[in-house]
């Protein structure tokens, strides 16, 4: 069971959270302007790295807020937690 540091509530057990998959998957600005292939990229195609992964979680049994996590998919180590709209760790100056 992971322990996740909700940016609003602090350290909580994984069971309080729900997973939201890859973070920063942008909704196309105009969905009707993109090809079926590009629309499929948005709908279905996802990064699935073995290593650090930027992903979304929601504190569904707590504050019910979404946020982003940087986590290692092999060690499960969580290296960063940040709010929606904030830049991912690597993008920070």
């Amino acid at each position: 069971m992971l322990q996740i540091d909700c940016p609003w509530c602090g350290m909580r057990e994984e069971m309080e959270f729900s997973y939201g998959g890859q973070a920063h998957v942008a909704y196309p600005k105009d969905p009707h302007a993109v090809s079926d292939e590009d629309w499929a990229q948005y709908l279905f195609m996802r990064d699935n790295p073995k290593g650090l992964f930027l992903e979304r979680w929601v504190h569904s049994q707590g504050c019910r807020r979404w946020f982003n996590v940087e986590r290692h998919t092999v060690t499960h180590e969580i290296t960063a937690v940040y709010k929606p709209g904030e830049p991912p760790p690597a993008a920070k100056p």
Partner: peptide
């Protein structure tokens, strides 16, 4: 409810 929250918070803040 989760669905609405997800769109509100992550797509249309």
């Amino acid at each position: 409810l989760d669905w609405l929250e997800e769109w509100l918070q992550t797509e249309w803040p």
